[in-house]
């Protein structure tokens, strides 16, 4: 009997705990207020926090309630579950960064059937029923980074041996960037000597760069197709520092606040960043127009690229919120 009571108590406690963690969703919804859910690939990835700021700023200005939700970690299956939940909630619009270019097709179709306006940002699902994509073209991102490297390497003795750092292998956006890099350097004096993977992890990325740079004294350049190692402070990357001292070239994708220090300290020639704030801002604005019955003619809304070098780094830094 005592045991039974105890069990009942534990169960009650468990049930009681859950609502405590239910989100208020910022401000309470007015019945007539339009709600747009913004869903990143994963809540653990800080790069999307600029998108959150952008979406919330646009939402505040336009009187739209913004829900920020998503899978804890980047995972397509979990993301589908989150989207199904949003369909049940009956939101008016969904702006989502797809974890997989095709895995979301059916859930996006269900949402559209339920009368929800769906668009993608950052990572597209081109064959789905989404209305538009707000973001930058990952192929162009790779192309631009490689173009900057080719300019830097002009006049250097061929081959300019270059290593590429990527994150998780097989990720569509990263593979697209690598494809952009490869196509651009073809026929120039730049040669891709190796592709190394840091598994989207700061620690692994730092270790790979340090090991590879140390092991290859003939290496001339690095292209990072994502800025993972630059989330650590410059002093951590001692082999890369020595690489720079002997004239090594470094071009990295991404231009988040902590990374700017590497340009200031002369550890990188160029950062090529995407505009995550604009993805949230423009995404919400266009979705609202669609919800209000307008037709969005543009299928791709290009949010542009930001190129940072020692000449403009101070200016760029002043415009960004510190992390």
């Amino acid at each position: 009997m005592k045991k039974l009571m105890l069990m009942a108590l534990v169960l009650l406690l468990a049930a009681g705990v859950m609502p405590l963690f239910a989100r208020g969703g910022g401000e309470a919804a007015r019945p007539d207020q339009i709600t747009i859910a913004v869903v990143p690939k994963g809540l653990d990835n800080p790069v999307f926090l600029d998108t959150k700021s952008g979406a919330e700023a646009a939402g505040a200005e336009l009187g739209v309630r913004i829900i920020w939700t998503g899978p804890v970690r980047a995972d397509a299956t979990e993301q589908v579950a989150v989207l199904e939940g949003l369909i049940q909630q009956g939101v008016d619009g969904i702006l989502v960064s797809a974890n997989d270019p095709t895995a979301l097709n059916s859930v996006i179709q269900s949402a559209t059937d339920a009368g929800i306006k769906v668009a993608t940002f950052d990572s597209d699902a081109p064959e789905s029923a989404r209305l538009f994509y707000a973001g930058s073209d990952n192929y162009v991102l790779g192309e631009t980074s490689a173009q900057l490297l080719v300019e830097l390497a002009e006049g250097m003795r061929a081959p300019v041996d270059t290593a590429v750092l990527t994150g998780v292998l097989g990720a569509f956006n990263l593979e697209e960037r690598i494809r952009g890099v490869r196509d651009t350097v073809a026929g120039t004096n730049v040669r891709i000597a190796s592709v190394q993977a840091g598994e989207d992890d700061i620690d692994r990325s730092v270790q790979v760069i340090e090991d590879y740079t140390e092991a290859n004294p003939g290496l001339d350049a690095w292209i990072f197709v994502g800025g993972w190692p630059f989330f650590a402070p410059p002093e951590t990357l001692s082999a890369l520092r020595r690489f720079r001292d002997r004239g090594g070239l470094v071009v990295s994708v991404d231009s988040f606040y902590p990374m700017l220090e590497f340009v200031e300290e002369g550890m990188a020639d160029y950062l090529v960043g995407q505009n995550f704030f604009a993805m949230g801002d423009l995404g919400v604005r266009h979705l609202l127009r669609a919800i209000n019955g307008e037709t969005i003619a543009q299928e791709i809304i290009d949010t542009g690229l930001e190129i940072v070098n020692p000449d403009n780094v101070a200016e760029v830094k002043a415009a960004k919120d510190p992390w």
Binding site: L43, D44, P46, L49, V72
Partner: peptide, 21 residues
């Protein structure tokens, strides 16, 4: 860990980093 950081990385001060570097 996710809850207290909302995903942002947190840097540590240089004097501390000597212990690991």
């Amino acid at each position: 860990a996710y809850a207290i950081t909302s995903g942002y990385p947190v840097r540590t001060p240089s004097p501390y980093n000597v212990l690991g570097q």
